[in-house]
Design a binder for these strands. Structure first.
Lengths: 329, 329
DNA sequence: GCCTATCATGAAAGCGCTTACATTTATATC
DNA sequence: GATATAAATGTAAGCGCTTTCATGATAGGC
């Protein structure tokens, strides 16, 4: 690989000038610029980004930490973030935290040591205090899907509580009164919030909550499978089921098919997230839309604005979920 | 952030010695090592990976180029690759090529300029010649899901033809003779190979192919929707349907439900890939397993062996697909 | 045509590390 | 205890670039 030095020699200028035409930072005479560009082309020169980073103390890379790399939710998130940064000439370094506090901390340090200019974090296990300290340390980062007091300006979230409310409200409006609930892991913020919305809706409709109709799942398909099996075994009747996310809803639907429950006639099912294959289920799943792509985009823009000072007008912090009615309710 | 220089001063040694205890490359007296480690701890020192890369001409980062970041297939692939490298202390830089030749080339250059030590490529549009030249240039890379003559030792693939054969053979063995086929984009290698397997199976069973039962889709759900609609409109009878991948199979199943076709009684459907929600469909999808995680792992190991000289015994190049029988056939 | 203000370019230091080579120190041999 | 040998450590030159500061070229004003 050719270096800037070789280019400068071929073009007959100093290497500072070459650097200037590369970075377009200081005006260079047109004729000189052309000479340099010709030399770069002739040598097939590409700047060494590592050297650039070291000298400029800026790596043009952004660290992304998500819980998992796979799955429809994170896939879409990453996809959008990458696209946004790619268009801005930045690139992403991706790590997975697997919802484990130690791993999350580790990954953050890892990304820092990789001299990322900024971080986008989807962390579920590290505590608020850690994040506040991290913010104080001067590291620029945005938080996705989590609202932390004190650093609210760095949070891009969905109003999960509202989403939970919408789901249950929808079922209540359809006349259901015995509504079962399969939650995600209750130590997760979003699980709690969604469940809170569910409870609020019940209250508003004057429906008492039945503890026998609650199950704590794992946000995976198996959570839905185990959940519905468990609920059916309990014997308490219910005509509708709210699931903490679409994966669990899908699992529950599988069980319903197996035991011969007609959906939505005998059991209405609603999910949450609107992952892009929620309409692969049969019947197609009614759910709450999680605008994951937009949230990813907004997080990316936060970084572009705060770190790279790109002129970006409005940054939206809290997104509002929407009910998507399909065939399962 | 503290530098190696500050550590060396605090520990009372030269900065070369600090470098040695960091990299563990040359033996250092135990006492010295302890002093240095204490100094590092006291300063909260973390090596600047950019400077390390520049000086050592090794970035410990691997570039991954896939067609899309989202979707079940790539999600699982990335997930496994990241895990494998993470365990080895390497990290990944991910880019998307979107099945576009220019973008793919661009992304490869981009990853190169990022001084990746090696690349894992899932490219569909750049031609063989380009890849061969790239190999000659000395850049270490592995190719996933594509077999290119001349650089076969860099290819980790699935025997798609065999998979296509298995799918159709399965249907033929069940007595089906009128078998429709919804292919992926036929300019893609894997689409062609899978289709080739299909044809071979028909031939082996002495069944003539009916051009009216072929449709070229897009590997997306809509391809399956459009495909089955088109095939039904043709009027040629068929009792089974082979889809080029699971997404299209899912789309076809949706259409089947809509038009009241019982699966598998009136129409048997088989997919390809065994993406992790192929059992979300109703009925659960029979398919051909694409061992995407293992292929990702193997690609990662190729890099670990060839680039970082890790002792890894066997590298498997061609994986064999397997038939997964579920409820849709 | 001379002086000053402006613009374009060059020279050189340094970003934080690795590593070849030189030097010092410890160990073994007789 | 002197010498040869091996082991540990130090010295300093880069890696390829950015950026400050100094210098040379160009133009404007009178």
């Amino acid at each position: 690989m050719a270096t800037i030095y070789e280019v400068s020699k071929l073009a007959g200028v100093s290497l500072a000038t070459v650097s200037r035409v590369i970075n377009n930072t200081v005006p260079v005479r047109e004729a000189t610029k052309l000479k340099v560009e010709a030399a770069m082309r002739e040598l097939g020169y590409r700047p060494n980004s590592v050297a650039q980073s070291l000298a400029s103390n800026r790596s043009n890379s952004i660290g992304i930490l998500v819980s998992e790399l796979g799955g429809p939710f994170y896939g879409e998130l990453l996809s959008r973030i990458e696209a946004e940064f790619r268009a801005a000439g930045k690139h992403v370094i991706i790590a997975a935290g697997h919802s484990d506090a130690a791993l999350e901390r580790d990954s953050i340090e890892f990304l820092q040591s990789r001299s990322c200019d900024g971080l986008i974090l989807h962390v579920e296990s590290v505590d608020d205090e850690y994040l506040c300290k991290l913010a104080e340390s001067g590291l620029p980062f945005v938080l996705i899907n989590r609202m932390v007091e004190g650093i609210a300006d760095r949070c891009v979230t969905l109003d999960n509580e509202r989403g939970g409310y919408l789901a249950t409200e929808h079922l209540l409006q359809q006349g259901h009164r015995d509504i079962a609930y399969i939650a995600g892991p209750m130590w997760k913020h979003d699980s709690q919030e969604r469940y809170k919305g569910h409870q609020d809706a019940l209250k508003d409709f004057g429906v008492a909550e039945n503890p026998a109709l609650f199950f704590e799942g794992d946000f995976q398909e198996t959570g839905g499978v185990n959940g519905l099996n468990h609920l059916l075994k309990q014997g308490a009747p219910f005509s509708a089921l709210v699931c903490g996310n679409d994966e669990m809803a899908s699992g529950a639907i599988t069980v319903a098919h197996e035991v011969g429950l007609e959906i939505p006639e005998q059991l209405a099912v609603i999910g949450f997230d609107n992952i892009n294959f929620s309409h692969y289920t049969y019947p197609k799943l009614t759910t709450i839309d999680y605008p994951v792509a937009e949230i990813g985009q907004m997080a990316a823009r936060w970084i572009l604005k705060r770190v790279y000072h790109r002129p970006i007008d409005e940054l939206k912090a809290v997104f509002t979920p929407e009910l998507i009615v399909r065939d399962s309710t």
